[in-house]
Design a protein around this nucleic acid. Structure first.
Length: 323
DNA sequence: TGTATTTGACCGCC
DNA sequence: GGCGGTCAAATACA
């Protein structure tokens, strides 16, 4: 636990330091020759850094009691918060009680998506579906394909939102202990969505901190959407801030580090989407395992990144920037 | 034939 | 008894 706190502390300092660095960058770009996009980008990053820092502080001692659900979540997710309590009496569930859990909201912007697991890069196997009281759509239950082979206890629940059917609430439980050797980039949503549906996904932008965060495994429409470019750019920066451009980001297929075992605060601070551990995470356990920064499959795709979005002067190659 | 999905049944909690 | 979560047999599919 002490290590966790120390790590969070360092991360907090990093965020603040990055905010300062970004502010300095912005200062340097307060010239007519500098593009407006660059300045806006820097402002975004500054705000992002500070909000991350604040959110970490709000987590209370960096890692303490956490909110139990995403504010934007439907009431149904409150019910799911009882899950562990409901099943605490059963030995098998007592163990599961300690598993981390967090919720994401995934918006599908165009068309439909499979009722499946909304592939996030892992291999999931559906083991159940349930009509949930008060919900218009059934909830799907998925577990890691390698549950038996490797004893991976990661599970997730996929619930389509009543208010907005284009939104899928995905509640993850547990972390992957498996090595998904067969996991390849084309298994990403981008591949499925683009090739199968000609659509894209957007991560729902509402967040705990009203900040748009990117879940690295998510993909974006292969269109020249400015928003997408910006999002992706930010995503790249987010990843870069996590310790520089990870090789796995550039070549995700080579990465076997599929899980990002960090605390909720770190999840946010690292831009892992508006993922929210809801409770009962074994934070120490989460933090202990080393991992690569991202397993984003999106790196395999050639997004229409507009170079304009990136300031050529932006110090990506400046080691200090990534401190 | 092996694997994934579906779906009704079961279990524990409230 | 209702509910959410899981199991496991039946079924579908490549």
């Amino acid at each position: 636990m002490e290590m966790a706190r120390e790590w969070e502390h360092n991360t907090l300092i990093n965020e603040l330091t990055q905010g300062r660095e970004m502010a300095n960058q912005l200062k340097n770009h307060l010239t007519p020759s500098s593009s407006r996009e660059t300045r806006e980008f820097l402002v975004e990053k500054i705000l992002s850094s500070y909000e991350k820092a604040l959110s970490m502080l709000k987590c209370g001692g960096f890692v303490s009691e956490l909110p139990h659900s995403l504010p934007g979540s439907s009431p149904r997710s409150e019910g799911s918060n009882q899950d562990f309590k409901d099943q605490a009496g059963k030995d098998v569930f007592k163990k599961r009680k300690t598993l981390p859990r967090w919720t994401e909201q995934v918006r599908v912007t165009i068309g439909t998506v499979p009722e499946g697991p909304l592939d996030d890069g892992y291999s999931w196997r559906k083991y159940g579906q349930k009509d949930i009281l008060g919900a218009n759509f059934p909830r799907g239950y998925f577990r890691c394909t390698h549950r038996h082979a490797q004893g991976c206890l990661a599970t997730k629940q996929v619930q389509r939102s009543d208010e907005d059917p284009s939104i899928y609430e995905v509640t993850y439980r547990g972390r992957h202990t498996c090595i998904q050797g067969s996991r390849v980039a084309p298994a990403s949503e981008a591949e499925q969505i683009v090739s199968g549906f000609g659509t894209g996904l957007k991560v729902k932008t509402e967040d705990l901190d009203s900040r748009e965060k990117i879940f690295p495994s998510f993909s974006f429409p292969l269109s020249d959407s400015e928003t997408v470019d910006k999002i992706f750019a930010e995503s790249m920066i987010e990843n870069s801030l996590m310790g520089g451009f990870s090789p796995s980001f550039l070549s995700p297929a080579t990465s076997e580090s599929n899980y990002f075992p960090v605390s909720p605060c770190q999840m946010n601070s690292f831009g892992m989407g508006h993922s929210v551990y809801t409770t009962e995470s074994d934070l120490t356990e989460n933090i202990s395992a080393p991992t690569s920064v991202t397993n984003s499959p999106i790196g395999d795709y050639s997004f229409p990144l507009d170079p304009v979005d990136f300031d050529p002067d932006f110090p990506f190659d400046n080691p200090e920037f990534f401190q």
